[in-house]
Computed example of a mutant assay.
Amino acid sequence: MISRTLFTDILIIVLLVALQIFVLNRITLFGKYTPVMYPVFVMFYPFFRNRFQFLALSFILGLGIDAFLYTWGINAFATTMIAYFRTLIFRTSTDTSTDFFSFQSLQWSQYLFFIFSSIFLHQLLVQYIEFFKFSRFFEIFMNVLATSAISFIFILIYALAFKVKQKI
């Protein structure tokens, strides 16, 4: 396993931004849904690391996406919010109250629920801030569900390929 330092975290952020902007944003499924992969940094960041550094790196990741998409901080906000609430999302999806977190101790259903709830919250924030109109409420919600489902499949493939379900 690679030793996680600030340098490797920044390198991962640069690679995820490049993957999202130059590869995934060019993929459009069913005419309007684009998979989102960059929140994997937030989801699988080690729990024991410095929380303020984690929040700052999450903000920088979202800001990097915003810089290329001209979205004025929407992705930075959404990425920072899921980073801030990640522990709560993890506890909710796993029914645990301990201060020790481990993906290795999770059942697959809990692991999948954690991934889907994280990406759903991210997409909910991004979509509603970007397109919010009361007249389009259900259309936006369906877009959030579809994008979350597509992104969930991509992130699950990533997690299986890199065996992320390990002790962190």
Rank of each mutant, 00 (worst) to 15 (best):
M1S: 14
M1W: 10
M1H: 12
I2Y: 08
S3G: 01
S3R: 15
F7T: 14
D9E: 12
I10T: 04
I10N: 03
I12L: 13
V14E: 04
V14K: 01
L15C: 08
L16R: 12
V17D: 00
V17T: 05
L19K: 03
Q20P: 12
I21M: 13
F22D: 04
R26L: 14
R26I: 11
T28N: 07
G31T: 14
G31R: 08
K32A: 05
K32L: 09
Y33D: 02
Y33L: 06
T34K: 15
T34M: 13
V36Q: 07
M37T: 13
M37E: 07
P39I: 13
P39D: 06
F41N: 12
F41Q: 11
F44W: 15
Y45H: 14
Y45W: 06
P46Q: 11
P46L: 12
F47V: 07
F47E: 07
N50Q: 11
N50H: 11
R51I: 07
Q53R: 14
F54C: 08
F54Y: 14
A56K: 04
F59R: 02
F59S: 03
G64R: 04
D66Y: 10
D66S: 09
Y70S: 15
T71E: 11
W72T: 07
G73R: 09
N75L: 06
A78I: 10
M81K: 05
I82G: 00
A83E: 01
A83W: 00
F85L: 15
R86D: 01
R86N: 02
R86S: 01
T87W: 02
T87D: 14
T92M: 09
S93D: 03
D95P: 03
T96P: 01
T98H: 09
T98S: 15
D99V: 12
F100G: 00
F101D: 08
S102M: 05
F103N: 07
Q104F: 13
Q104G: 00
Q107M: 05
Q107G: 12
S109I: 15
Q110V: 08
Q110I: 11
F113P: 00
F114A: 03
F116A: 06
S118D: 04
I119P: 01
Q123A: 07
L124I: 01
L125N: 11
V126H: 06
Y128M: 08
I129A: 04
I129L: 10
I129N: 02
E130M: 09
R136D: 09
F137G: 00
E139I: 00
M142S: 05
M142D: 01
N143L: 14
V144P: 00
V144L: 05
V144W: 00
T147R: 14
T147C: 02
F152Q: 13
F152Y: 15
I153F: 15
F154T: 00
I155V: 13
L160H: 07
A161I: 14
V164P: 00
